[in-house]
Amino acid sequence: MAGRRAAEASASGPARRKVPPEQRQFNLILALMATEQGLTKHDILSTVSGYAERFDDASDRANLERQFERDKEDVRELGVPLETVDQLGAEGDTRLQRYRIPKSLYRLPDDIEFSAEEVALLSLAAQVWREGSLTEQSRRALTKLKSFGHAVEQSVIGFAPSIRTREAAHDPLAGAIDRRRQVTFPYLKAGQPEPERRRVSPLALVNHEGRWHLHAHDEVADAPRTFLLSRIVGGVRVEEDAARAPRPDEAARAQRELKELFERTTATVIARPGSEADVVLRNRAGTVIEGETLIVRTTDLAVLADELAAFGADVRVEGPESVREAVLTRWRQVVESHG
């Protein structure tokens, strides 16, 4: 019975109907995994279900080819190792290039198994993300891990850490790091009136003390730089130019640098005893209490000045002078713009 049905399906090729994108892409994956030496674009468009139905319509060919280009991107985005192999002696000729997906690179190594407990822990890890691309990425990862047959649940436990990724820059930067491309963006340095366009090789995204930072190599200054994502005040443009490769321990290294910077960058303040400022600054991570004097830490004095200025008359900055002046400037600006 089954054989009969299968034969029916193949007699006319898979049914001639509008194929949803994920089915067309899945058909593509199956076809490219079945081939050793690879298929050319012509092979794929003329035979793989989802393309083949439209292949005879010459007026549609350019659309079909663009469709194929987008599908390749989407499939790779999901971690499927879709390879392009140049024809010897015809490097770069897209008509002769062959595409394939090596099974050994596609499948999870045999010795990797995830237990029910591990999948539960990973579901909790996925719940850390509040929105945006990290939620999407972890949701897809969990969907793949469902193949192990363990329940993936939204669990409620007594502790629930969450991290937001509200900055629009997060997604394009993560994509550019993954695809190893340079980016440009307008960056508003604290205390400056106008943003400045920066061009960098993005290397790692680090969340430190609740703030997202981009660790990068500034291609104009030719030096490493760290940027606050909240100060990227416009679209991130992903450029064609290849970026420097991140070192294997790039994120850990950037994290360590931020931590060291945090340890050695301090300001001295006095808060009105018993005020909200007093309680909050004493509880602030890394604060050293010396009687009524508080030594507070930061990775960025301009950011700290913003934080301190928000307490108004309840804080007095003793030093350094740059922070004291920055706080006074903010208050003067408020008087000017609201007087």
Partner: peptide, 29 residues
């Protein structure tokens, strides 16, 4: 079944879960 393999995670998928685990590791217990 012409395909029976479990897929790998993409680098970004793995990275999202790994960073989530790092956040969890700061929790008591």
């Amino acid at each position: 079944a012409p395909l029976d393999e479990k897929p790998r995670l993409s680098s970004r998928e793995a990275s999202a879960l790994l960073a989530g685990l790092q956040a969890l590791s700061a929790l008591p217990g």
